[in-house]
């Protein structure tokens, strides 16, 4: 009991002492970098529509995503994306480029452990939970939609 009290007091003390992240500069940076990535996506989409006027809009969006995923993956390989991420935080994690980075980076990291047990197994360590949650929530939403 005594120990519990001691630990509680210590945790509160540490919590008060921890240096805080400054929310406004972080928010500002993630806002404009995240926005810029979205603008880039829109630009790519517009260009595709311009160059291939007969393409359906849905297909053009798919190609846009492919280009964005490729770019982020490529920048991860070059060692640039983690620097963007360090600066922008959520701004470069939330768009699909962040998802691409979260799959490419463990793939790179664990290729030394072999293609199957290293790269393929570890590739989804970070993105895996996101995919699982995405699928499960879409099932739930789908079921609700079915009965409404």
């Amino acid at each position: 009991m005594d120990e519990k009290k001691r630990n509680e007091a210590y945790n509160n003390y540490v919590k008060a002492k921890i240096p805080k992240t400054k929310p406004w500069p972080s928010l500002f940076n993630s806002f404009w970098v995240g926005g810029l990535i979205c603008v880039l996506g829109q630009g790519i989409n517009d260009l595709i529509m311009l160059w291939f006027p007969n393409m359906a809009e849905q297909t053009a969006w798919t190609y846009t995503l492919v280009v964005l995923i490729f770019l982020a993956s490529f920048l991860t390989g070059l060692g640039v994306y983690d620097r963007i991420g360090k600066f922008a935080g959520g701004g470069s994690i939330v768009p699909i480029t962040g998802f691409s980075n979260s799959i490419t980076s463990p793939a790179l990291e664990f290729k030394n452990e072999g293609i199957i047990y290293g790269m393929c197994v570890k590739m989804f360590t970070i993105a895996g939970p996101v995919i699982v949650v995405g699928i499960i929530s879409s099932i739930i939403v789908g079921l609700i939609y079915l009965f409404i």
Binding site: K20, G77, Y81, D82, G85, K86, G89, I93, L108
Partner: peptide, 10 residues
Amino acid sequence: PLELGNQRPP
């Protein structure tokens, strides 16, 4: 992983 674009807490 090293190349993951995350931010380190202070």
